[in-house]
Design a protein around this nucleic acid. Structure first.
Lengths: 253, 253
DNA sequence: CCGACTCTCACGCTGCGTCACAGTAA
DNA sequence: GTTACTGTGACGCAGCGTGAGAGTCG
């Protein structure tokens, strides 16, 4: 009467270890347990096991399977949710494969050491010229800004500029990853990254809500800025502009 | 000089726990460690961290990332392999979503309790008639088989037939899952399942290599068998036939 | 003296695979 | 006695999250 654990294992194609595990987590207790501790299974358990294996095949987690079989969750709804999740995963892997392909193309293009080279593109002179642009566009307030900037960087050595430049590159790369993963500009992770950007700009001058958003717009409109960001990733300039606007609206007064 | 762990964390967008983890596994040791145990990072580590994050974003494992950055593995080759894996995963999720969709359709079709109902479709009378078919087709050898079958089932009660029927259904469901996962008919998992099938048939009579393969062919050709298998899953009859042929060739003498 | 950081354990999560050691059934 | 099963732990894996408890810096 009934089947031993190894018999059930052979019949169903799982290992006895799996059956013990299912017993352990309460998903499939045996019909009875002998005085020697042996597990014995009946038809009822075999049917349940088949249902478990069916749902497991679909990729459902064991806890969810248990709730479905115990009637706690409606099968139709669970499967519907699960299907959406599967499709999202499929799309995610598809996007990842695309990103890998593009990365490979960049590597072939000789950009392997790009990260290190990038740090050369950020120095004090260029920064000063950029800020002069701001003066033209945003008038006196920005003019105050550039004066403040000069004051703050008085005692800076080459090392200090390099350090800030590096951090600027780092936050830009971080934003590229967020962009590629299609994070919204008001995503907390994006705002955190922009916050880092804001702190770096703050090393030179302290933007207000309006001037910070204006700086973002300039990244898109000014050719020299655009070139810098487009070289990093197409669309980065616009993404950064929008993210800075979202940041300004959400966290600056 | 250098940055503390929290500063690096803010700059890069990871947590300090992650940085400790990377130190722990040797992926990113800090530039130096203070006498108080504090970790301090320099530009070199920040660059390496950016590279780590880039590769991590692509979905590579940390061990692989380490080998790539240390020059043990060629980036182009690793990325190429990884891309293939990503595409396989994408296809796998796509197939799973399709299977879930079909399962949902079956549930709506009122087949929810199918598993339990299926057991009614297997009884001694029908089995006897099936075996009579074998006699017509495969002559004396099969005739010996059916005589043997009658002899073996002499003392069987309804329960015995039910038990065998249940196991037959179980192995068929198992084969359906293997079919849906597109396992080849000579896949070891398939052969194990067919072995289970063979043992069940053996409860009635012991097929030889030729007669077992012949039984498989009959599953496809005989309308009553076909109906049984087609009801379970379209294509199951042919799949079972081929799997039985592979099993006969590989494991029967 | 407090608040913000830092450190080192160490468990938890998913679903079992894989020993290790020991009792049991045929 | 041997062989084939059975049992109960317990570690391992991937990549950290999440406290706990304690020392450190400003």
């Amino acid at each position: 009467v009934g089947w031993s654990i190894a018999q059930v294992a052979r019949m169903s194609g799982v290992t006895s270890r799996t059956l013990r595990h299912y017993d352990e987590i309460g998903l499939l207790p045996p019909a009875r347990i002998g005085s020697n501790g042996y597990r014995w299974y009946e038809q009822e358990q075999l049917i349940r096991l088949q249902q478990i294996l069916l749902l497991r095949e679909l990729g459902l987690g064991l806890d969810l399977i248990e709730r479905v079989l115990d009637g706690t969750e409606a099968p139709a709804e669970v499967l519907s949710r699960h299907r959406r999740w599967l499709l999202e995963e499929r799309d995610r892997f598809d996007r990842l494969a695309g990103t890998v392909t593009r990365t490979m193309a960049q590597l072939e293009g000789g950009g392997q050491m790009a990260t290190e080279e990038l740090f050369d593109g950020f120095d004090a002179d260029r920064q000063a010229r950029y800020e002069a642009e701001l003066v033209d566009r945003y008038g006196d307030h920005a003019r105050d800004g550039i004066a403040e900037s000069k004051r703050r960087t008085q005692g800076w050595a080459r090392q200090d500029y390099q350090a800030v430049g590096q951090q600027m590159v780092a936050v830009e790369e971080r934003l590229v990853r967020l962009l590629e993963s299609e994070a919204a500009v008001d995503d907390p992770r994006v705002l955190d990254a922009v916050d880092e950007h804001y702190r770096l700009v703050d090393r030179f001058w302290t933007p207000e809500r309006e001037s910070y958003a204006g700086l973002g717009r300039m990244y898109v409109e000014h050719p020299e800025f655009r070139a810098r960001y487009d070289a990093r990733h197409p669309g980065l300039a616009e993404y950064l502009r929008d993210a800075m606007a979202a940041y300004a609206a959400a966290r600056l007064s």
